[in-house]
Design a protein around this nucleic acid. Structure first.
Lengths: 93, 93
DNA sequence: AGTGATTGTAATCGTACGCTGACATGATAC
DNA sequence: GTATCATGTCAGCGTACGATTACAATCACT
């Protein structure tokens, strides 16, 4: 899954936590942050620390891969609806 | 390239910036932060904001991919970042 | 020499982070 | 009914972020 905003990550992390059957408190303990941090993060805190996010991923057994971005940035067919862009705009609004 | 710490990202980002021929000031303008932010980030600021890091990647035409952590370790894939080139560039800097 | 660009740092300041502690809600039990 | 448990949210606090301004060091090029 491509991560273009913190909201993308929030959605993925929350569903992953549920998948693993972890409560916010349990996850917080794994990460080494307060339960409130997890709650705020999943609520979409826009300025969370990068280092803590890395530890969150580790606790959820996820990882970041850094890739070149130019590839399929956009090849929208003429006249078609760009669903990704619409969703992105919706998220950022 | 796998990102397990902010250090990993710092190395990749700095190398990428040079690759694109951007100064810290030019990159900062693209991201919408101060030049000092870029300087501090590349110096390894441990608590940078996640949102700004995302914008940094966008400005450098890089992107995060969120992967399952249990998968295989670093197998070179198409479009991925060349770590060797990156590290040699880092040594030369 | 001198000029300009690039980068690192320092001081100051306003703001938001993340912490602790507490309280309220809604489930899911017993 | 009343215990949990999970989650959201508030207030207070200390701390670090990021912006701004400024200065210094290191290049490159004339």
């Amino acid at each position: 899954m491509q991560i273009n905003s913190i909201r993308d990550l929030v959605v993925a992390a929350r569903s992953r936590r549920r998948e693993l059957g972890l409560s916010q408190a349990e996850l917080a303990a794994r990460i080494g942050v307060s339960r409130q941090w997890v709650s705020a993060f999943e609520g979409g805190r826009p300025r969370a620390e990068f280092g803590l996010v890395i530890r969150l991923l580790d606790a959820l057994d996820l990882r970041f891969e850094l890739l070149d971005g130019e590839s399929e940035r956009d090849s929208p067919r003429r006249g078609s609806v760009d669903l990704d862009a619409m969703l992105s705009d919706y998220r950022d609004a």
